[in-house]
Amino acid sequence: MATDPKTSLSAASLQSPMPSPVSASAPTVTDSVCMSLENVTISYGSFEAVRNVHLELPRSRVTAFIGPSGCGKSTVLRALNRMNDLIPGCSLKGRVVFDGHDIYNPKVDPVEVRRRIGMVFQKPNPFPKTIYENIAFGARINGYKGDMDELVERSLRKAAVWDECKDKLQQSGFSLSGGQQQRLCIARAIATEPEVILMDEPCSALDPISTLKIEETMHELKRNYTIIIVTHNMQQAVRVADMTAFYNAEAVEGGSGKVGYLVEFAETEVIFNSPGQQATLDYVSGRFG
């Protein structure tokens, strides 16, 4: 994989004042690449939020994004399924390759991209519909023709929330607790049968028990899905992630604010035990700032 000519070419042509990411050589695991970012720079208006990201996300693995607040983790995550399109003024340079195609190619339909790359947000956001409809909605608009009852049950089971929901499927999604709502949102994302699930701090509003349940869910899911999760919780990254990407932000000359960049991308074990960069070591050992 490291011999992929395109990757090494763009890595070589990278001219950045920042420490060059060691990502190009990182994934030594023998699985295939699911998505790859090639020299991605994302700006809000004229402000560059993250610069020159190179990343290869392995298939059927959990990848964690960690880093200090404001370094652009959410921004990169949203770029993976074109969610940034919804933010006025947000633009992307570089390529995000999924299934052999650049998803930012003008011919690509973002709706189709989001059907294959689902997303779970930081704040639980169930639709103001019944629990059943919350699940069925996405499946139906994706053209699901099979047994809907069965799909609803299967999705809720996969998201570890079936037992809490099975007696109140016709009640509003808001009648659940925050943690249950978040798992309902995960079930909703699963029901559309995406290939990749993006999660932006899915557990930040949850108690430890719900968090553990969601982590178990992720372990279950990674057999069939590629998962990318943003988290501020180091232990969580260690517990769930196979690969970890550490981002940081730095003030640059002539810039209007701090610009985020990818510092290091490697197996979670490596990132937390023997990282290649001093900044990573400082961050994961809590000596940051």
Partner: peptide, 13 residues
Amino acid sequence: QELRWGAYGVGAS
């Protein structure tokens, strides 16, 4: 806004 994102996130037009 989260509600819109949720809908777009499951692939709604």
